Simulated scan of single mutants.
Amino acid sequence: MKNKILILMGILALYSCQNKNESKNIIKTIVQDTLSKTIGGTADLSDAPPRDDKAVELIRKQLNVLLKKDLPAMTKDDRSFYYEEFDLNNDKKNEYFVGFSNSYFCGSGGCSGYILNNDGSVINHFSVTDFPIYVMTSSSEKFYDLIFESGGKFHYLKMKNGKYPSNPSVQEVYKEQIPKESTKVLSITDKKFVKYSF
Rank of each mutant, 00 (worst) to 15 (best):
M1R: 07
K2D: 09
K4Q: 11
I5R: 10
L6S: 07
L8Q: 08
M9P: 00
L14S: 10
C17G: 15
N21T: 10
N25V: 05
I27V: 14
I27E: 14
T29V: 06
V31D: 09
V31E: 14
Q32V: 10
D33N: 15
D33V: 05
D33Q: 14
L35F: 13
L35D: 13
S36L: 08
S36K: 14
K37A: 14
T38L: 15
I39A: 15
A43V: 09
A43R: 10
D44R: 11
D44E: 09
D44Q: 10
S46T: 13
D47I: 13
A48S: 13
P50L: 12
P50E: 11
R51I: 10
D52Y: 15
D52S: 12
K54Y: 13
A55R: 07
A55M: 08
V65S: 12
L66P: 04
L66W: 06
K68V: 05
K69N: 14
D70Y: 08
D70T: 06
D70E: 13
L71N: 08
P72F: 05
E84K: 09
D87E: 09
K92A: 12
K92R: 14
K93L: 14
N94C: 06
E95L: 04
E95K: 03
G99C: 05
G99T: 05
G99K: 02
S101E: 12
N102W: 04
C106Y: 02
G107R: 07
S108T: 11
G109D: 13
G110S: 11
Y114T: 03
Y114N: 00
Y114P: 00
L116P: 01
L116F: 13
S121P: 00
N124M: 03
N124S: 14
V128E: 06
V128A: 15
V128H: 05
T129V: 02
T129L: 03
D130Y: 03
D130E: 12
D130T: 09
D130Q: 12
F131E: 05
F131N: 04
P132W: 02
V135E: 00
V135N: 03
S138D: 12
S139L: 06
K142R: 12
K142C: 01
F143V: 00
F143W: 06
I147E: 00
F148H: 06
E149H: 03
G151F: 07
G152D: 07
F154S: 02
Y156K: 11
K158A: 13
M159P: 04
M159E: 04
K160F: 01
K160G: 02
G162Q: 06
K163V: 09
Y164G: 05
Y164R: 03
N167T: 14
N167H: 12
P168I: 08
S169A: 15
S169L: 13
V170C: 08
K175D: 10
T183F: 04
L186A: 02
L186Q: 02
I188G: 02
I188T: 07
I188M: 03
T189H: 08
D190L: 07
K191G: 06
F193G: 01
V194D: 09
K195C: 06
K195E: 09
Y196L: 01
Y196F: 15
S197K: 10
S197V: 02
S197D: 09
